[in-house]
């Protein structure tokens, strides 16, 4: 711990605590209520796990990109596209076949949506962050246009698709209302494990890590850096799309305008907090899930606007990013 970092942490805490005091809420009270609203009751735990699922899958998507040297800020767009495609496929083809189709379709759609960013980075030298920001905005407008037009459920006032039939939903693994756990959560955890194994034990994972850590050295080591870059982006996008599929099939059961409350951006924070191991994504996603569910709870219970959660998450990202830099430098 050094003084610079200490100042940053104190300042961040000061901002949050100051904001709470300014609106007349005791900070300790807010903290306890966040815990109560996120892990205090079986129902709260269920909501937190539900909130954690997309963060987990999207966190894996971003993490994979980061390992390969790509900042996939576009998971938000890939998530929307994946969800939209999954919903329309699931509505067309009901049953288990529809579920499979929706999962695969969502992943492919996400990958295709990420492809331009990977290609531009590899062959045109354009920064992937800029291109994925553009793709996010296009995805937002495109899906909104679709759900307001061709995909809109007949007879509905709001811009939404129809709801999936029960046979096209992902089942609950554990259901004792109010606590329910969807199988999608297990699926997400399995994805983390698979990624961890793949990165550590396969030649392709080794080469992807090399491209991310030192692209020039990777090139001299016989790795086709451009090809790896495009494939990394495709894989990251596919996982992003997959997160959208899961969200539709497991929880939302439809697609509508304003489908994502910004999961994609929170997932960037999750991946950064995860550090250098894929397993780090799990606690990071859990933390963000707790904060999100808890802050929804206190916005009703204590009249604290939900915006404070954004401030808190932003500050956590900043502190952690500053900390990580210091740690990696102190090795040298």
């Amino acid at each position: 711990m050094n003084w610079k970092l200490a100042i940053l942490i104190v300042a961040a805490l000061g901002v949050v605590i100051g904001a709470l005091i300014a609106i007349g809420v005791a900070p300790s009270d807010a903290f306890l209520q966040i815990l109560k609203g996120s892990v205090g009751t079986p129902g709260a735990i269920g909501r937190t796990l539900r909130e954690t699922t997309p963060l987990l899958i999207l966190g894996v998507a971003v993490f994979l990109g980061l390992r390969g040297g790509l900042f996939n800020i576009g998971v938000e767009g890939q998530f929307l596209i994946g969800a939209c495609v999954a919903a329309s496929l699931g509505l067309k083809v009901p049953g288990i076949l529809g579920v499979l189709l929706a999962i695969v379709g969502g992943a492919i759609a996400g990958a295709l949506w990420a492809f331009p960013a990977g290609w531009i980075k590899a062959y045109r030298g354009g920064h992937e962050v800029i291109s994925t920001i553009m793709l996010n905005n296009i995805a937002f407008h495109l899906t909104t246009g679709l759900v307001a037009g061709p995909l809109k459920a007949p007879g509905q006032q709001s811009t939404t698709t129809a709801t999936l039939t029960d046979s096209t939903k992902l089942p609950m693994l554990y259901s004792a209302p109010p606590l329910t756990i969807n199988i999608a959560l297990i699926f997400a955890l399995a994805l983390v494990a698979a990624l961890a194994l793949w990165l550590k034990r396969t030649v392709a994972g080794y080469e992807l890590n090399a491209v991310g850590a030192n692209p020039k050295a990777a090139q001299f080591a016989g790795v086709d850096v451009r090809k790896v870059t495009v494939w990394t982006m495709l894989a990251s996008g596919a996982i992003g799309g997959l997160a959208g599929s899961c969200q539709v099939l497991a929880y939302e059961h439809r697609f509508y305008e304003g489908f994502s409350p910004g999961y994609g951006f929170d997932a960037l924070g999750v991946a950064l907090l995860a550090g250098s191991s894929p397993w780090g994504v799990v606690p990071a996603a859990g933390l963000f899930g707790i904060l999100s569910t808890g802050s929804s709870f206190i916005s009703a219970a204590l009249q604290i606007p939900k915006g404070l959660n954004g401030v808190l998450i932003g500050l956590i990202i900043i502190v952690f990013a500053a900390f990580r830099y210091r740690r990696s430098r102190s090795n040298g």
Partner: peptide, 25 residues
């Protein structure tokens, strides 16, 4: 602090969105 430009920019967007909501409400 030598934080990555993108990461810090993103965090600032998140903070601004939250803070403006908070102040306004």
């Amino acid at each position: 602090y030598r934080v990555d430009h993108i990461v810090s920019g993103m965090a600032i967007n998140i903070i601004a969105f939250g803070a403006s909501n908070f102040l306004d409400k």
